[in-house]
Deep mutational scan, measured.
Amino acid sequence: EPELVFKVRVRTKDGRELEIEVSAEDLEKLLEALPDIEEVEIEEVEP
């Protein structure tokens, strides 16, 4: 069974934007590691 992958769009407080694809596990780590995120948009990517 393929692992869930999420497309994550992040905007930081200083206005930088970042778009990455991460696994569910990595997404959890990412959110814990970035306390200064202003906006996060997450969508599931079809395998």
Results as ranks from 00 to 15, higher is better:
12 T>H: 06
33 A>T: 11
23 S>T: 09
46 E>K: 14
45 V>W: 11
22 V>F: 02
16 R>G: 04
40 V>N: 02
20 I>N: 00
44 E>V: 14
10 V>F: 13
40 V>L: 12
25 E>I: 10
13 K>S: 07
7 K>Y: 04
24 A>Y: 09
18 L>D: 02
2 P>W: 08
20 I>L: 10
25 E>W: 11
31 L>M: 06
17 E>A: 05
46 E>D: 09
24 A>P: 05
2 P>Q: 09
38 E>C: 07
14 D>N: 05
40 V>G: 02
25 E>A: 13
20 I>H: 02
33 A>E: 09
9 R>W: 06
47 P>H: 10
30 L>S: 01
36 D>E: 08
31 L>G: 01
18 L>V: 07
5 V>L: 12
25 E>F: 10
42 I>D: 02
30 L>G: 01
38 E>Q: 08
26 D>G: 09
34 L>M: 10
45 V>T: 08
26 D>F: 08
15 G>L: 01
38 E>L: 13
9 R>L: 07
38 E>F: 13
3 E>S: 11
30 L>H: 02
23 S>E: 03
24 A>I: 08
28 E>H: 11
45 V>Q: 08
41 E>D: 08
1 E>H: 12
5 V>S: 08
36 D>Y: 05
42 I>G: 02
25 E>Y: 10
39 E>K: 12
36 D>R: 04
38 E>G: 08
38 E>A: 09
21 E>M: 15
2 P>D: 06
22 V>W: 01
34 L>D: 04
22 V>Q: 00
12 T>P: 00
35 P>Q: 14
40 V>D: 02
42 I>P: 02
41 E>Q: 10
47 P>I: 11
11 R>L: 08
9 R>H: 06
24 A>F: 10
32 E>D: 08
1 E>N: 13
15 G>Q: 01
35 P>I: 15
37 I>T: 06
43 E>K: 11
21 E>Y: 15
19 E>Y: 14
38 E>T: 08
36 D>K: 03
10 V>Q: 00
6 F>T: 01
45 V>Y: 09
43 E>Y: 15
17 E>N: 10
28 E>V: 11
6 F>E: 00
19 E>G: 02
26 D>L: 07
42 I>C: 07
42 I>L: 05
17 E>D: 06
23 S>H: 07
43 E>A: 09
16 R>C: 12
11 R>P: 03
25 E>H: 11
28 E>Y: 12
27 L>Q: 00
14 D>Y: 04
20 I>V: 08
28 E>A: 13
28 E>T: 09
16 R>W: 10
7 K>F: 04
46 E>P: 09
45 V>C: 08
14 D>F: 03
11 R>Q: 05
8 V>W: 01
29 K>G: 05
31 L>A: 02
10 V>A: 03
33 A>W: 14
39 E>S: 14
1 E>G: 12
34 L>Q: 03
39 E>V: 15
15 G>E: 01
11 R>D: 02
32 E>Q: 12
17 E>T: 14
13 K>M: 05
39 E>A: 11
40 V>T: 04
30 L>D: 00
16 R>V: 08
42 I>E: 01
27 L>K: 01
21 E>D: 05
6 F>C: 08
39 E>W: 15
44 E>W: 12
12 T>S: 03
36 D>S: 05
25 E>M: 12
31 L>T: 02
42 I>N: 02
12 T>C: 07
22 V>L: 07
29 K>C: 12
4 L>A: 07
6 F>D: 00
44 E>P: 12
24 A>V: 06
15 G>A: 01
39 E>R: 11
22 V>P: 00
9 R>A: 02
41 E>P: 02
14 D>S: 05
1 E>T: 13
43 E>Q: 10
14 D>E: 04
26 D>M: 08
21 E>A: 06
15 G>W: 01
28 E>I: 13
20 I>S: 02
41 E>F: 14
5 V>D: 01
3 E>R: 14
22 V>G: 03
38 E>I: 12
19 E>T: 13
4 L>E: 04
1 E>L: 13
43 E>D: 06
23 S>P: 06
11 R>H: 06
36 D>A: 04
44 E>T: 10
8 V>P: 00
13 K>V: 04
21 E>I: 15
6 F>Q: 01
4 L>D: 02
35 P>F: 14
12 T>V: 05
22 V>M: 08
31 L>Y: 05
45 V>H: 05
35 P>L: 14
3 E>W: 09
8 V>T: 00
7 K>E: 01
31 L>D: 01
28 E>K: 12
35 P>E: 14
20 I>D: 00
10 V>G: 02
47 P>K: 10
44 E>K: 12
12 T>G: 04
9 R>Q: 02
29 K>E: 04
1 E>V: 12
38 E>D: 11
39 E>L: 15
15 G>C: 01
6 F>V: 05
44 E>D: 06
19 E>V: 14
19 E>A: 05
37 I>N: 06
18 L>Q: 04
14 D>H: 03
18 L>T: 05
33 A>N: 12
6 F>H: 02
1 E>I: 11
37 I>M: 06
19 E>S: 09
17 E>S: 08
21 E>T: 14
33 A>H: 08
17 E>W: 15
2 P>E: 06
35 P>R: 15
23 S>C: 06
47 P>S: 10
21 E>K: 09
18 L>R: 04
22 V>E: 00
37 I>S: 07
43 E>I: 15
19 E>K: 08
39 E>Q: 11
44 E>Q: 12
41 E>H: 13
17 E>Y: 15
44 E>R: 14
21 E>N: 07
35 P>H: 14
32 E>N: 11
29 K>V: 04
34 L>N: 06
11 R>T: 09
7 K>L: 09
45 V>N: 07
11 R>K: 10
38 E>Y: 13
43 E>T: 13
28 E>W: 12
32 E>F: 09
39 E>M: 14
8 V>R: 00
27 L>A: 01
7 K>S: 02
27 L>G: 01
20 I>T: 02
10 V>P: 00
30 L>F: 14
4 L>C: 15
33 A>R: 09
15 G>N: 03
19 E>W: 15
17 E>G: 03
13 K>I: 04
16 R>H: 07
35 P>D: 14
46 E>Y: 14
36 D>Q: 07
23 S>A: 09
6 F>I: 05
25 E>R: 14
37 I>P: 05
27 L>I: 06
33 A>Y: 09
5 V>P: 02
26 D>S: 05
27 L>R: 01
24 A>R: 12
34 L>A: 03
9 R>C: 13
35 P>G: 15
31 L>I: 06
34 L>H: 08
6 F>M: 04
2 P>M: 09
43 E>G: 07
1 E>C: 09
13 K>R: 08
36 D>C: 10
2 P>T: 08
22 V>Y: 02
